[in-house]
Design a protein around this nucleic acid. Sequence first.
DNA 1: AAACGCCTCAACCGCCGGCGC
DNA 2: AGCGCCGGCGGTTGAGGCGTT
Length: 185
Amino acid sequence: MRKPCCEKKDTNKGAWSKLEDQKLTDYILKHGEGCWRSLPQAAAGLLRCGKSCRLRWVNYLRPDLKLGNFGEDEEDLIIKLHALLGNRWSLIAGRLPGRTDNEVKNHWNIHLKRKLLMMGIDPNNRRSLLSPTLTKSNASNDSSSACQPFNPATASETISSTCLPDLNLDLTIAPPLSHQNLALN
DNA sequence: AAACGCCTCAACCGCCGGCGC
DNA sequence: AGCGCCGGCGGTTGAGGCGTT
């Protein structure tokens, strides 16, 4: 039986207070990201689970975060990357500077899924919901053959040739931007 | 102004893979 | 090789905001 990630009885839950944010930010700016499990105690006795601290930092407090609405180009990129990578939100977010996986995931679930549906595109497999020819050709196969799980070796060919309307995909596999930035430094 | 329903998003939960012992 | 710990990930949820009646 796996132990819980932390002792729940002694931890706060729910929304973070400004004071907690401040403690966490101060600690990480001073010591850097490190052992999340011991961080809450080290960070002036934060009564939070280490995972919770990590999530708060990554999704909200990190200084390099780009806050605010997604731009058209970002939405476009998310749609294309999702077509290529599937629900690999961390990978997708890695290619959108200043965006987090949680943010991308939320935006996809709330806005982009709906946007694709409005365009008559199935957000799960990028197949047209309107095209009878596509539906018919897929109907002859069993459901598992419609869109296979992500396979890097065949993904772009498979997706662009069988599942997608013209989304103008011109993606290449490259290291995430954060890695590229590190390499430059 | 109040009540209600819908929408958004921050945060939680559970699982998985990597790593060290 | 097996086990346990830890960080990271994706799915889900619930509180609060917002719009409508």
